[in-house]
């Protein structure tokens, strides 16, 4: 049974379909990678319109709370062997919007991410290099973010609800809030 899984993982790594959803400003480097100059189709990565047919969800940069809700819907609609790629510094520790009130800081608290790429908007070469690395991870069977999502579902849902379903204001009354710098 396990050699079938290896064979399946081998071919899965070679035909990763990417969801055509530009969530953040990093999506401006996707068209050059998709079209003729850098051509990611050489690695079997093709942009797909609907989450049902996609395997990779690229979180290209920052995510505001509103678009995080849509990303969580999209992520949960994707079928099981799915992977998430975190582009750029905004998904790691907040990037240049570290003090913004509407941008999430660490993507890993809300959805499991399989590979992070450094760069404030990684170059097309860095994106292609990450596809090659993701293919190795899939072949070695280490890219199991989706299983981690199922395993500690409550923890992820608790973090998401802390951001989506707030009933009380986050800051105390304006009088106690110190005047901003």
């Amino acid at each position: 049974m396990s050699e079938w899984k290896e064979l399946a993982d081998y071919f899965r790594g070679r035909s990763m379909w990417m969801l055509h959803y530009c969530t953040g400003c990093g999506a401006i480097e996707l068209p050059p990678t998709m079209t003729s100059r850098w051509d990611m189709e050489r690695f079997g990565v093709v942009p797909m319109a609907t989450p049902r047919q996609a395997d990779i969800l690229l979180i290209t940069g920052y995510l505001s709370i509103k678009s995080l809700k849509r990303v969580v819907y999209t992520y949960e609609q994707m079928s099981a062997p799915k992977w998430v790629l975190g582009f750029g510094s905004c998904t790691i520790n907040g990037g240049i919007y570290w003090d913004s009130y509407s941008v999430i800081k660490r993507l890993d608290k809300y959805i499991p991410v399989d590979l992070y790429i450094a760069g404030c908007m990684p170059r097309p070469e860095a994106i292609l290099d990450s596809f090659v690395k993701l293919r190795e991870l899939i072949k070695k069977g280490e890219a199991k973010g989706y299983e981690k999502y199922v395993k500690n579902f409550e923890w992820y849902k608790a973090n998401q609800d802390k951001v989506f379903r707030r009933t009380t204001p986050v800051l105390k009354k304006p009088e106690e809030v110190t005047k901003s710098a």
Binding site: Y101, I104, S180
Partner: peptide, 13 residues
Amino acid sequence: KDFNTLVYSEELF
């Protein structure tokens, strides 16, 4: 001006 965005984002995130 009296909304402190850093305190807000530290509290929320």
